[in-house]
Amino acid sequence: MTGLFSQLVMLGSSGMLLTALIVLWRRGLPAYIAAYRWQSWLLAAVVATIAHFGDDTSLYWVAGALLVLKGIAIPALLGAMRRRVGVTPQVTPFVNTETSLLVASLLVVFAYLLARPWMAVSHLPTREGLPLAMALLFVSLFIIVSRKKAVTQVIGFLMLENAIALLAAVGTYGVPLLVELGVFLDALMGFLVMQIFVYHIHETFDTIDVDELTRLRH
């Protein structure tokens, strides 16, 4: 029973990390949005698994909210944004694909190193997911830093958000519903604000390449 539980959590977490790596490897916004959608569904699935095996019914609500908000609503909004801005399919990164993947693998190793003391003190069956969640966090940060287009950075931010949610879920069996709702709201607000910014950047500079923002200096 416990073996199945931890196997499922690990599977879900690994899948989430994989979707993040897809962003480093594929080009083009539709692929990114799809990756994010998959990631959110996997997150919802992990939370639902924890709810089932951990006998915590309130986590079902969290899983449902995750599915609706991050799995359906935000990807839809991202799609709308893509259509409005009309991003060129070629999304140029700062770092090329090979190096990106190499860096990502180093980050995953680093995450495993960092999570070791934590895993030593944790007795939860979900603890195998901890290093994966940390790795997702680092890879998301790397996405934000290494991508040029504002939309890609928004996706990186959303993945970071997912990583934190995953970390909370596998580290402590999820935080109370109220806190989780607060975090949702926060993420949604952040997303909406960033959306407005993307539009404004697009209107002002005729591009959403944030490299151009350097011109705002002085």
Binding site: F110, V210, L213
Partner: peptide, 25 residues
């Protein structure tokens, strides 16, 4: 330090986080 590049600022944040974690470890 204030180069005006968002990526650089984000890199600062990421580096600070990694350094904090490394020092804790």
């Amino acid at each position: 330090l204030q180069a005006g590049s968002i990526h650089l600022y984000l890199l600062y944040v990421a580096t600070a986080l990694v350094l904090a974690l490394v020092s804790a470890w």
